[in-house]
């Protein structure tokens, strides 16, 4: 307690300006490295575009103009909304199934062995194959993207759930047994909290893999969404358009990463002691 009080009083001595300055410094530390990367990328691209001077490598200005064309009027967001909706639908199905399969496989060795070949098969088959097969079998309805994404990301997410189940502390499980915690209590207070960091990791991988699958599905079998738009820009040989769609989607994924996943992570780890090293 004494330490805490000292820290507080030290803070009190700072005047308001210094506090603002330190807040600014903190913000700068938070954002500057990422901004620096973007600046480097833009600089590198501009240099490359000028050096090649080819219509196949549009310069930064052209690409940004293309981005503006897509974003103004909200066309890009409508298309991204469609694509994201499909990803989320497929992701949700994969999440529920892999949670069940992962928990089952962690609890029963026989079931684990039964699932092993399926997981390896799932990890081996390229998303392209799932996309093609689903378009052939299920046509152009909502089933195609959901099944293709679920198949594409399920195996990886099962592995994450399995890892999370292994991370559950057996000493805590013993404690719960002695104190006769109900199955519901064990689930809510032990299993899920232990699983959450691994579920967030699985969600991160799942969402990014899901994006790679859905683009192919939309390209082969659907008439809207980012994949379809990418393909139509490609058909009209608009390289800047292809790049612009990629950039806009990247921006959306950044928002999801910082806005959703990292907030979830922070909320679920607020009990952790932060090392000062």
């Amino acid at each position: 307690m004494a330490d805490t009080i000292q820290v507080e009083s030290a803070k009190g001595r700072h005047d308001k300006g210094a506090a603002t300055a330190s807040a600014l410094r903190r913000l700068a530390g938070l954002w500057l490295p990422s901004i620096a990367f973007c600046v480097c990328l833009l600089g590198f691209w501009e240099v490359m575009a000028r050096a090649t001077a080819s219509p196949l490598v549009p310069n930064v200005g052209e690409v940004l103009g293309e981005v503006r064309r897509l974003v103004v009027g909200g066309f890009a967001f409508r298309q991204i909304g469609i694509t994201l909706g499909r990803i989320l639908a497929g992701f949700s199905v994969a999440f529920v199934i892999s949670l069940g399969v992962g928990i089952g496989a962690a609890r029963s060795v026989m079931f684990r062995r039964f699932c092993d070949p399926a997981i390896i098969l799932g990890l081996t088959v390229p998303g392209l194959v799932w996309a093609l097969l689903c378009v052939i079998w299920f046509g152009v309805g909502l089933t195609t993207p959901i099944v293709a994404i679920a198949l594409g990301i399920g195996p990886v997410m099962v592995l994450h759930v399995l890892q999370g189940m292994k991370a559950v502390d057996s000493e805590i499980v013993e404690m719960a047994h002695v104190f006769r915690l109900s199955t519901r209590d064990k689930l809510i207070h032990i299993w899920i909290p232990s699983l959450i960091p691994h579920l967030i990791g699985g969600a991160r991988v799942g969402l990014s893999l899901g994006w790679k699958v859905i683009v192919l599905v939309e390209l082969f079998g659907l008439s809207n969404g980012v994949g379809y738009q990418l393909n139509s820009e490609f058909s009209s040989q608009n390289v800047a358009g292809v790049l612009a769609w990629t950039i806009v989607f990247w921006a959306v994924m950044v928002v999801i990463e910082y806005g959703v996943l990292q907030s979830l992570e922070r909320a679920s780890s607020k009990w952790r002691r932060v090392s000062e090293l």
């Binding site: 000493e171 006769r180 209590d185 207070h189 952790r272």
Partner: peptide, 28 residues
């Protein structure tokens, strides 16, 4: 009703002190 104290505390680190105790007493 069996209570046990282990060599290590075996607390749920992601629950508050109060919640750790409540969980056992409610289960009993």
């Amino acid at each position: 009703r069996v209570g046990m104290v282990f060599q290590q505390p075996r607390l749920l680190d992601w629950r508050t002190v109060r919640a750790n105790v409540d969980l056992a007493s409610k289960a009993a």
